[in-house]
Design a protein around this nucleic acid. Structure first.
Lengths: 240, 240
DNA sequence: ACAACCGACTGGTCAGACCACTTGACCACC
DNA sequence: GGTGGTCAAGTGGTCTGACCAGTCGGTTGT
């Protein structure tokens, strides 16, 4: 018996999603005014405070601009949106946006080594010890999803060791986008299960405080996954 | 007579800032419940809808968790916050957080070359032409702030050329944090004004589609600024 | 032609009420 | 001792209707 928590979504949540999707899909052109709060409330059959909560949250993400006395207008998300929008761009209208997914994989492969280098400079043996603990756990994992979660834990430690708030925040944003997709991705990444050596080598480089080696080792950790995922995305693209 | 635009901040805005600061400063411990909406409204002397708008916006950033029927609790921003929070972390309680600033500079120097490499692969001569236009404009600029704004425009083009939504969003977040500080930083970066050669070399590498050269050229573009800023931060740290 | 004005419309705020949900205490039962 | 039922208090969710505070565009008077 597989029970799932029931989801109860608030009215404001639904408005938030609906308007956000319309903005991202381009149904509302950039610069175009949204209907007034009163009108939205009437059309949607809800109260104005509920509409306002949704609009204020959207304004918080930077996708619309609310001006007292004037109309609320749509902004260009390519210049206005921040990394927090990534999860919503990655999975849209039910499906996975392959262009966004490619971009995530690229960024992961590009930024990861830099994090590893910083962690090697700053983490020291204490960090290496924690990393090895995770690697040992990975050695015992057989489920691909479980494996990937441990890999995320590994990177979490690495990001901590880098002692960089910017990388920490980047990682959080990427993880938020990446983690929900894990179950769906599990099968694709089954081949990687058991390949602990690259992770161990990276931990060794961290212990030695060798930034250059850590950078190279991180690349070897990330490349297989990146290639597997990009190949899978190509396959999806072909069958369409 | 130097007049500045008057700032009219809405009640909800003020509550938003106040609660956010309390969370970031750790005055509200992680896991701790916030006062109830009714209580907050009473204490602050405002209406409940105004409080709600503020809390919902904070929840949107991930810093608190609102549960129907239960208390609203504080989350750990180190694991819950995304890159959008960066501007608020960079300038806090009036001053610049030097640790955050260091991190921004580091990340900029680390991520920039990757963007340049992608742009070289994908941008081609068309992008290079646009870049050269900006470089020419930089050649005529004498004001440090103006110079830095042109440099941002240059990077904006490069990010466009990289055709990566993730880098685009990262850049937006970093720019949002960086740009407001520009006037204050202007003087520190005066020495860089006129050094257009690195920018021109990078544009050439983009025209040639040479990713490796572009990567190296980007490093040469970024390093002087990074070193100047880090030195300035050291000076600030010393005088305290 | 121009400036001042004014009305219609927009977002901002308030008050008070009721609904939906969580929590914890208490109690009856097995 | 553990189970489940019940209930009250407190919390967030929503609604209504009103008024305040800005913006905008047309009208009016010069």
């Amino acid at each position: 018996m597989a029970l799932r928590p029931v989801t109860r979504r608030s009215v404001a949540d639904q408005v938030f999603d609906q308007v956000l999707d319309d903005v991202l899909d381009g149904e509302l052109a950039v610069g175009e005014p949204l209907p007034s709060e009163r009108r939205l409330a009437e059309v949607l059959g809800i109260s104005r405070p509920a509409v306002r909560e949704a609009l204020q949250r959207i304004a918080q993400t930077g996708l619309v601009e609310v001006r007292h006395g004037g109309a609320t207008t749509v902004r260009d998300f390519r210049t206005a949106a921040g990394l927090d929008l990534l999860p919503r761009l990655l999975v849209r209208t039910g499906g996975l946006d392959t262009a966004v997914a490619r971009s995530v994989i690229e960024a992961r492969a590009e930024v990861g080594p830099g994090i590893a280098a910083l962690a090697a400079q700053r983490g020291g043996p204490a960090l290496a010890h924690q990393l090895i603990d995770v690697v040992d756990a990975m050695g015992g994992a057989t489920d691909p999803v479980r494996w990937q979660q441990l890999a995320l834990d590994y990177w979490d430690l690495l990001v901590d060791g880098a002692e960089s708030i910017v990388y920490r925040l980047m990682f959080n944003s990427l993880r938020t986008a990446y983690e929900p997709a894990l179950p769906a991705l599990g099968a694709l990444l089954a081949a990687e299960v058991g390949q602990v050596e690259p992770y161990r080598l990276l931990a060794d480089a961290v212990r030695a405080g060798d930034a250059a080696t850590a950078r190279a080792a991180a690349a070897r950790v990330l490349t297989p996954t990146a290639e597997a995922l990009l190949a899978a995305l190509d396959a999806i693209g072909d069958e369409r």
